[in-house]
Design a protein around this nucleic acid. Sequence first.
RNA 1: GUCCCAGUAGCUCAGUAGGAUAGAGCAACAGUUUCCUAAACUGUAGGUCGGGGGUUCGAAUCCCUCCUGGGACGCCA
Length: 556
Amino acid sequence: MNIVEEVQSKLKEEIKAAVVKAGLATEAEIPNVILEVPKEKSHGDYSTNMAMQLARVAKKAPRMIAEELIQSFDQTKASIKKMEIAGPGFINFYMDNSYLTNLIPTILKTGEKYGETTVGNKQKVQVEFVSANPTGDLHLGHARGAAVGDSLCNILAKAGYDVSREYYINDAGNQINNLALSVEARYFQALGLDKEMPEDGYHGEDIIGIGKDLAEEFGDKYVKVDEAERFQFFREYGLKYEMAKLKKDLEEFRVSFDVWYSETSLYHNGKIDAALKSLRDNGYIYEQDGATWFKSTELGDDKDRVLIKQDGSYTYLTPDIAYHKDKLERGFEKLINIWGADHHGYIPRMKAAIQALGYDKDALEVEIIQLVHLYKNGEKMKMSKRTGKAVTMRDLVEEVGLDATRYFFAMRSADTHLDFDLDLAVSQSNENPVYYAQYAHARICSILRQGEEQGLTVNENIDLAQIEAEKEIEVLKKLGEFPLAVAEAAEKRMPHRITNYIFDLASTFHSFYNAEKVLDSEHIERTKARLALIKSVQVTLKNALSLIGVSAPEKM
RNA sequence: GUCCCAGUAGCUCAGUAGGAUAGAGCAACAGUUUCCUAAACUGUAGGUCGGGGGUUCGAAUCCCUCCUGGGACGCCA
């Protein structure tokens, strides 16, 4: 618990104590104490609506209750300077904010660990994200999913969850066959031979490239071999090539995974059969029209789902159920899947499957990533993998820059449509929010450098009482919020809260910078204290930026 | 047709365990630099929170209904 949390919880305790002391309600009757930071500065540092909440229990007017509460309140505790009743019955607390200065030595000592909390309670969480089919380049939607997923994982880890990042490789099924046939066609074409692309083939540039590479390396060797061998070769080659490219692209996007899980492996290790058996044992399987069905309607789905088709092959769902069973058997208490918007209809059947396997359906959480629309020169661009004309993640990063891309995706809540304005993201102007935060960091670094040139290095031997200006207190309050912001972003699975926090912190810093001078030879003690203060901001900003995969430059 | 998501300032969006006069960035307008980076700061203006009902001391937030936009409803993956 940091200082801010301590003060808040002490305040809540005192509020409860006052309620009991004033005889307004018994301990059991007290509603959850709500403490909030008023939007309006003149309303104090904190306020509570306790008096209004008690109106019904105590059968008195809220303002009267507030009056009695204040009478019974022990103001000597919890750093309270002043209390006031306002509006319909709010009690506003004006704090003696000097306690906040203790944040500075805390942050300097904790360094890159500042912001860590234990709210996650080491809960074992697995986050599955991206999981794009290895049949072409990652496009915009995948990029957004990658950015959101990676940020969420970073945040969960920071908040004390035990996180594992996983990528499910769809290396079985029709799309891989189509990949093989597409590679084959491109290979023939590269040799100048006539060969049509399969109906559902992949028309991306990358596949054309593979065809050329193969033609160069092997000549017409694979034109001559028999069809089965040829198919097998192209399948494996294509898969290996695509996966290597995916990994590389993701790494360059600052996204890494702990586990790359192959769908095909489920076919070979008996896990699909085991999953089917489990479903059958629990009574959720029946046969009809020559197919095997999952009775998912009994568990909240719209319709029952086929697991084994008439031709004996599995549907996509079947290995996926086995996969989720395996995840749960690996001991994860919470599975978070990050899926594209086009998969949201898939949620009820997966949850049904989790239940049918004997687990709590809430063990699975699905975060939906809504569509990204790219705007360039005022024109909306569509993304479609099949036409091959879609903007890829690589194109995007190349054009916009890595930091801007990651920042833009982390800026908005994931479940709303995103209009990505290319021209804005590219622009090096003040319209672009990415630079705002990075500039704050660079600015601090610059001041610290100059301080050092004057022989002023930041250390903990400072006079905290030197920190008292209004802008300084505001900066401190923001710094103190960081662990709370991380905890909330983690619990609500909302990475964009961190981006908002970054912006706010940068903003309070810039405001402070313009109002107060840090380096001031007339006031050495104050200068030292302020250097420590801005060093704390620098540490916190860098930590926050790293959560969303954005760098913190020392110069700009 | 059924289900899901969204609709908040001119534009892009925050804000959902109900709270005080609904916020920010950009755009607009007016200012700030002999001074640590002006990629910054300060201020002004801008709103029937899609419409209409309801719940209550109080609703952008909860319930109902309608409108608009997007998506999902395969023995595809």
